[in-house]
């Protein structure tokens, strides 16, 4: 496969991670994540797909070290180039992996340049390269013209650009995105996706990205992994993962049609034939 040829060696490996952590009301005995394994390669942009509540965000938080594995299962399950992630102190961990959420907001006066330079928190010391990294990140994420603006005055999509720039400035080896492009317009989404792809390929980084937009996934992701109820249902090349057989397994109530009339295929959902919406009397 040509996609597999472009990719380098593994950069991030997860071996059978399970988590029963619950937020708010206890989930009981059910697993949020169950025996999840995945491998991310250098230069790979991998999409993490699945229905709402399937454990995608929990997985990303676990990988970013925002939550920890329950003590009973504290085995060495997450590795990056021979290092065990759980044994790193937060500052060292942040040099390897960082998570970008879908919201980037502060309650206090902070300019875009200041917010992006906060990404350098884990690299204390080297001030010259800090400034260079911040400038480069602003440039890459198309927010150089916003640099003196107050973060609070920006729109949701612009704030997502700044949030991404913060993560790029941090120059981690693995970037975890949790619907971080969801509010960007078509043009920004295209240019940022292109930037992410070239960033990953030229600098040998890995990107793991949660998205619900299958058209975007088909256009940009090298590979994809489907999660359902905390378990990996399928893992492989993007084109394989978007086949109707797999989609109908994930979303049994829907028929997902592929329309190839456009430049790139579009995935859209329609109600399954024969299953009519009940009429309200």
């Amino acid at each position: 496969m040509n996609a597999a040829r472009r990719l380098g060696g593994p950069i991030f490996e997860i071996d059978q991670v399970s988590s029963s952590l619950g937020f708010g009301p206890k989930v009981g005995a059910s697993w949020i994540l169950k025996d999840v394994s995945l491998t991310l390669h250098e230069g790979e942009l991998k999409a993490l797909l699945g229905p709402n509540g399937s454990g995608k965000t929990t997985l990303l938080k676990l990988l970013a070290g925002l939550i920890t594995l329950p003590s009973g299962g504290a085995r060495n399950l997450i590795h990056s180039k021979g290092r065990t992630m759980q044994s790193l102190i937060p500052r060292e961990r942040a040099k390897v992996v960082t998570l970008v959420g879908s919201e980037f907001y502060t309650e206090f006066p902070l300019t875009v340049a200041q917010a992006v330079s906060l990404g350098r928190t884990c690299w204390q010391g080297a001030h010259v390269s800090d400034q260079e990294a911040v400038e480069e990140a602003l440039e890459r994420c198309l927010c150089r013209n916003l640099r003196e603006r107050d973060l609070r005055s920006l729109s949701g999509g612009q704030r997502q650009l700044v949030g991404l720039a913060r993560a790029i400035a941090q120059s981690p080896e693995v970037l975890l995105l949790d619907e971080s492009l969801s509010k960007m317009d078509l043009d920004h989404q295209y240019r940022v996706s292109e930037m992410l792809k070239s960033w990953a390929q030229t600098l040998k980084k890995g990107v793991l990205c949660v998205s619900h937009d299958l058209s975007w996934v088909s256009q940009w992701a090298d590979s994809a992994i489907w999660l359902k109820a905390g378990e990996v249902v399928a893992d492989g090349e993007t084109s394989e993962m978007l086949k109707p057989e797999i989609l109908s397994q994930i979303y049994p109530g829907l028929e997902v049609q592929t329309q190839k009339k456009m430049v790139s295929p579009i995935w859209c959902a329609v109600a399954k034939t024969g299953e009519r919406v009940r009429e309200i009397p």
Partner: peptide, 20 residues
């Protein structure tokens, strides 16, 4: 002061920036 700066963006962001 530096860690407090990172905290301006909220606890989760600060943690993914390497703040304990």
């Amino acid at each position: 002061a530096r860690d407090l700066d990172a905290y301006l963006l909220g606890g989760s962001e600060a943690q993914s920036m390497g703040v304990d």
